[in-house]
């Protein structure tokens, strides 16, 4: 027991030796680490907590974290059906929504219902260049493009690639848009 503790403390002292009594070197190493962490979370991958009822049942109201790929920032290589993190255009927050339309696509501006068939009178638009159409999975509780219109792709921060339930439990997210039949 004491032998193990002694070897652990000797390892720690070996690791910290380059920084002990060298404040400038320690400061430089910390600055490098902070810069690297900033670049990594801004341009590669980041994790953040999500909350709210607008993405039920894909995400719980509270208690889940998401893994976001920043390689998809500004809507790069994003497809219809993907989940994205975006800057909400009508306030300062960030949101998670599903992409239902990209520039040039055609989308329904209203809300479909589970118990009412479509009539053909629903309004549609063509998504303008440089924009996307975002809608939350929980239709009655989501504030999205149905309220504030198409969202500039410049506001897309990244694509949600995984859901983190706990530090040791996660699940990758797949695009749920599936083909029904081939060409008729």
């Amino acid at each position: 027991m004491f032998g193990r503790l002694r070897s652990l403390s000797s390892r720690l002292s070996t690791l910290s030796r380059p920084y002990l009594g060298r404040p400038f070197r320690t400061f430089l190493a910390a600055a490098k680490f902070i810069c690297f962490a900033h670049l990594f979370t801004k341009y590669a991958i980041t994790a953040s907590p999500g909350q709210g009822p607008s993405m039920l049942p894909t995400f719980e109201v509270i208690g889940e974290w998401i893994l976001v790929s920043k390689f998809h920032r500004l809507g790069r290589n994003v497809s219809v059906g993907d989940l994205v993190v975006y800057e909400i255009p009508i306030n300062d927050g960030l949101g998670i929504k599903r992409v239902l339309g990209l520039p040039g696509d055609y989308v329904m501006t209203g809300t479909p219902h589970h118990d009412r068939p479509a009539t053909g009178h629903e309004r549609m638009i063509q998504v303008p260049p440089g924009h996307c159409w975002l809608v939350g999975d929980n239709l009655p509780a989501s504030r999205d493009s149905r309220i504030f219109g198409p969202v500039p792709l410049a506001l897309v921060r990244g694509k949600v690639i995984a859901k983190i339930h706990s530090p040791f439990s996660y699940s990758w997210l797949e695009n749920p848009l599936k083909k029904v039949v081939g060409k008729e």
Binding site: P53, L56, P57, V61, G81, R98, P112, H113, H114, V135, G136, D137, N138, L139, P140, A141, P176, L177, K178, K179, V180, V181, G182, K183, E184
Partner: peptide
């Protein structure tokens, strides 16, 4: 639209919390 374009589908939901 029917002949040239492949049909795809996804599900969204109407969810209600009984006691928020």
């Amino acid at each position: 639209l029917v002949q040239d374009c492949e049909l795809s589908t996804l599900f969204q939901y109407e969810c209600y919390i009984d006691h928020p």
